[in-house]
Design a protein around this nucleic acid. Sequence first.
DNA 1: GTTTAACCCTGCACGC
DNA 2: TGCGTGCAGGGTTAAA
Length: 281
Amino acid sequence: MPELPEVEIVRRDLEREVVGKKIRAAEVRSTRNAMRIVRRHARRKEFEEPLSGARFTEVARRGKYLMLRLTGGRVLVAHLGMSGRFLLVKTTADIENHTHVVLHLTGGLDLRYVDPRAFGMLFVVTEEELADVKELHRLGLDPLEQPLTWRYFSETLAQRRTKMKSLLMDQRFICGIGNIYSDEILFVSGIRHDRPSDTLSDQEVRRLYRAIQEVLQEAIRERGTSADDEQYRDLFGMVGGYQKLLRVYQREGGACRRCRTAIERARWGNRSTFFCPQCQV
DNA sequence: GTTTAACCCTGCACGC
DNA sequence: TGCGTGCAGGGTTAAA
């Protein structure tokens, strides 16, 4: 599923490939879940009309949200959910299953939004309305865009006593980290998922702080993780390479890359967490 | 304040 | 082979 590194790769590719291009027509298709994807709009036209004729000017990201800026002061906001992806293909290419939205661009290209599980969301707002979008409003710092200050980071950890895994995945604290990268970051830091945040030593806080940057940057260099059944694909349909480097995620029973102990899996609710019982304390 | 569970959805693994 | 069932997961919200 796309987390910060995957969304950042899509952002960079979109920035390079679609900025300057014009949308000839926007189309919300009639798949079962198309209206669910554009659920903030009551009608198809509310989504389609402001996009038609506009030109992409910039592609920004905040956490797992993409903001595609357009001429005319419009912004197309996208969250890929679990299985959403943008696909840039020739207009003549076959429409793959679960393609809910198609932006027909000039130059014979389509920018398509495909999302089998339909947890993703697309909507269009004006630049002024963007400031009031509540989902964006409550996001915490983005570890790449607004590097975490040491003070904010360590104070928040000390003030709260929630389990570390929950805190790392709390988008109001830091945005962009999900299940895969929280497990990887905690392993690199040598911290267990269930440690209360206010029990970390200064040294552990420092390790965690560094690991967040390290892991996310490394994953971006490898073009993301394509680990699950609904594998992440980039704008051109290519898989990432970071799944080969995963240290703990989905490696239950495998040998820890550091100490050879078997990686364990724990659950809470219906989420899984993977960790090394030896290296993480 | 924190934790847990349910909801949305589809594809897949599994057992019969 | 084919069916039904359970599970996974991100974000949100309600309840504990």
